Amino acid sequence: MLVSESNIELINHRLKYLYDNFNIEPSTEEVQIGDEDIFIGFPDEWDGDNSYYSVDDFLRYTGDLENIQVIYNHSVIVGDTRQTIISVDEYYYEHLVPDLKFDTEKYCLKIVNNPFLIGIIASQYEIYNEDFGIFPCSDYKAVELTYKKKERCEEDDIEFIKTCLYHIASKYNVPISIGEFRSWNDITDEENDDITIVSSSELIPYCKAMDYYMEGLSIEKEDIKYLHFYKIIEYFSPIVSKKASYEQLNKRLDALQVVERDSEYLESIFKLTKQYEVSLKDKELANTVLNECVDIALLFKFLPDKIQKTLSKSCHFEVKNIASLGSSTIEVIKKEIADILYATRNSIVHAKSNYTVTGKECSEEDLEQLNEFMINLCECLFVWNGRQSKEYQLK
């Protein structure tokens, strides 16, 4: 289809709607009869050559802009067309995956570059920043889903999209998944020319767990990030447990100078052994490090607000008074937090089909804040490890 006398007025009307409502920059050239495509001036867009859309696509994308829908942080729907952002390595996709079209009774699906619907939403909400190299349209590749039937279900749509992405991943060995709108940290525009000298006394001794920590910081998906931080708990817990058990055992042995070596005394040695074995079980690992390595009263504020409120209610204390609580209450709080950390870990690791919810799992929306708690917990563990004697210091 070309721009014609019969559609030019409609095209100009829709362009004006984009200019007025979606932060699209008006073109310096007017639409002319006979044009094959329509230019869309996405703001701060570097790739202007690829900002042209066929007349057919333009009319399809702009057919019902008044009722445009944004789904979560990854999809946009107008009329019978849905675009969902995907995350994939552009180089591998372009060189390994042919042009594909998935066709069923309910859907038609293809992969598109410079997705129009994603671009106009990124423009409208100013999800772009030229200084950081974030562009509203050319930064994205998307699934374009065309609905063939009026009946729609978000769960079915996502399931079909993921089925198609799995086909691509498995057949062409290219990791691909649903993505989301870009984000960036606008820290400062000022350059810092000062030199900060760091002495050896400020450095914490290296241990392997620091690798997990740095890998975790670089991961965007909050659930995978959490598993990296939890791995640090698993790394330290055995040596923490061993140190605590050895110290208790030494105290028992020291007491031989003043008590009899009778059956009661020997039984206490057996109990220490059993306690040590219990502390090495998976469900006790988090509790071990919380009990021995950190001041939970200082870390408590980093927990998600919802968890703080739940714990204050179940353990009968006010959050503002946590620093003045007795040791018995603090011990209960530590155990509750440890259970939350362990349950959250299990809910991520195990498939939903064979995992039974305990009610202690951190919700998905609070996982980012829980990771802030984990970051601070891990840093405390590195400091704890650094001040141990060589006998107990992990490398």
Rank of each mutant, 00 (worst) to 15 (best):
K301C: 03
E361A: 08
N23G: 12
A142T: 03
E66F: 01
F302A: 05
D295L: 09
K306W: 02
S279D: 12
I24Y: 05
Y230D: 06
I233R: 07
N291D: 10
K309A: 11
I40F: 01
D366R: 08
N12R: 15
T146M: 04
R261H: 14
D89L: 08
D282K: 12
E9W: 06
Y72S: 11
G34R: 06
P26S: 10
L299I: 12
E202P: 10
R152F: 02
G48H: 10
E318N: 14
N287F: 11
K101D: 00
S200D: 15
S199V: 13
T310C: 00
C207A: 06
S314D: 14
N376F: 07
L394D: 07
G386P: 08
D56S: 10
H316L: 10
E144W: 00
C378L: 08
G63C: 08
V278K: 12
D157S: 07
L299N: 07
L377E: 04
D80H: 02
I233Q: 08
E336Y: 03
N371M: 03
M214A: 10
L117K: 03
G63F: 02
F116H: 01
M214Y: 15
T146E: 07
N250P: 03
A169M: 07
T310S: 05
E154L: 15
E144L: 01
S327Q: 08
Y206S: 11
S87T: 11
L227G: 11
N23Q: 13
I161C: 02
D89R: 11
G326K: 12
Q32L: 09
D295M: 05
D305W: 04
Y52I: 01
Y19Q: 01
Q248H: 13
K225G: 05
A343Q: 08
I187P: 05
Q83T: 02
E144S: 05
F102A: 03
Q69D: 07
F229H: 09
D366L: 03
A286I: 11
G216Q: 03
T358F: 01
L325A: 06
D194E: 14
Y392V: 09
D35K: 05
H316I: 07
Y128K: 04
I134S: 02
L10T: 15
E94P: 00
H167P: 00
K301A: 04
G326W: 03
I296D: 08
A343N: 07
E284D: 04
G179D: 01
L203F: 11
A323Q: 13
Y107W: 02
S200V: 15
P304E: 04
E5W: 10
V349M: 12
G79S: 04
D366H: 10
P238V: 10
Q83F: 00
H228W: 04
N114C: 06
Y230N: 11
